[in-house]
Amino acid sequence: MKLGYQTNTWGGVVGHPAGVTSVKDLYYLANGSTEQALTDISAVGYKGFELFDGNLMQYIDRKNRFQDLLTTYSLEFIAVYSGANFIFAEILEEELWKIEKVAAFASEMGAQHLVVGGGAIRANGVLETDYNALADGLNKVVAIAEKYGLIPSYHPHLGTIVQSPEQLDKLMPLTSINLCPDTAHIEAGGGNPAEIIKKYADRIKYVHLKDYENGEFLPLGKGKQNYHEIMQVLKKANYQGWVTVELDSFEDPKEGAQISKDYLKSNFELFDL
């Protein structure tokens, strides 16, 4: 398994103000320096990185600069993370237009994976039909990803209609998209990460690791997640893909990345470190 890191620790998750007035321009965004993130990720010894669609699109008119960063830091561009509401028919075309724009550029820059989150919770609660709408939207994402040679995966997330194991089980039979398990979000939603990975092993092409305890996302080894069980399940499933460590925020992002790397290096021999 190869080990990557998400750049969102540098600046945290802030979103994009254009979303207030223009759905097609609404991106995830880490409000920090992508170049500093890649400097630190490379220095710590990770092999690749994932970044938000908003941070990627900052390079749409500076393609050579982005490619130079990959060469300078000897990093692979693993994945771009995007998302949408997916359940509102009137704006779905705009959301998919944005995702396709992101997918096309990510593919051009050498990305392997397109990861999406979403499935909005309505002000008046969740409708059962929302799962069908989400699944239909995700199937369209699959078609977009395949058009550009990317591997599509859905990332269950707190704050969406797919938080709990029961909600995930409701969605997965309705769509063909792969599953990107985020161990912390799964546990925060009431699930057992190892059991979820075991259940959907044949649909897992990409994995997010993040530790968790008492409502807080933490560097690996600093929470209560049972990574020995998780790694055993991945090994038994003969998983050989990328594993990306993610940490939404940390006072010193480079230190957070180092803590997680040291933990994995000390405890597991599954990674190409």
Results as ranks from 00 to 15, higher is better:
172 M>E: 04
179 L>W: 01
161 I>D: 03
146 E>F: 02
135 A>Y: 13
168 L>Y: 06
195 E>N: 14
173 P>W: 07
154 Y>H: 09
155 H>R: 13
164 S>M: 02
163 Q>C: 13
135 A>V: 10
161 I>C: 03
174 L>E: 00
161 I>G: 06
161 I>F: 03
166 E>C: 00
133 A>K: 15
169 D>V: 07
167 Q>G: 06
203 R>M: 06
192 N>T: 10
148 Y>P: 03
154 Y>D: 03
188 A>N: 07
134 L>N: 01
191 G>L: 08
184 A>E: 02
166 E>M: 14
141 V>S: 08
198 K>I: 04
197 I>S: 05
134 L>K: 00
194 A>G: 13
191 G>A: 10
157 H>C: 10
200 Y>I: 12
194 A>D: 08
167 Q>D: 04
202 D>H: 09
152 P>C: 07
145 A>R: 05
151 I>D: 02
170 K>M: 15
167 Q>P: 05
185 H>D: 10
155 H>A: 08
147 K>D: 01
165 P>L: 05
136 D>N: 13
159 G>S: 10
198 K>M: 13
149 G>K: 11
208 H>Y: 10
189 G>N: 04
136 D>H: 14
150 L>Q: 09
165 P>I: 10
177 I>T: 06
180 C>K: 01
173 P>Y: 04
145 A>F: 02
172 M>W: 04
136 D>G: 09
204 I>C: 09
134 L>F: 01
149 G>I: 13
200 Y>E: 08
209 L>D: 00
188 A>P: 05
193 P>H: 14
138 L>K: 11
178 N>V: 00
132 N>P: 00
180 C>Y: 00
171 L>E: 02
141 V>K: 04
166 E>F: 11
145 A>C: 05
168 L>G: 09
181 P>N: 05
185 H>I: 00
170 K>W: 02
178 N>W: 01
195 E>Q: 15
209 L>T: 03
187 E>A: 15
169 D>P: 00
142 V>M: 02
159 G>C: 14
156 P>M: 05
181 P>D: 02
180 C>Q: 14
148 Y>Q: 03
134 L>S: 04
136 D>M: 09
176 S>F: 06
169 D>N: 14
183 T>G: 02
198 K>C: 11
200 Y>V: 15
179 L>F: 02
178 N>E: 03
144 I>T: 15
173 P>C: 08
208 H>G: 03
208 H>M: 07
168 L>H: 05
165 P>S: 07
203 R>C: 07
143 A>Y: 00
177 I>R: 02
134 L>Y: 03
176 S>I: 10
185 H>K: 13
194 A>V: 11
169 D>H: 12
153 S>K: 14
147 K>P: 01
156 P>R: 12
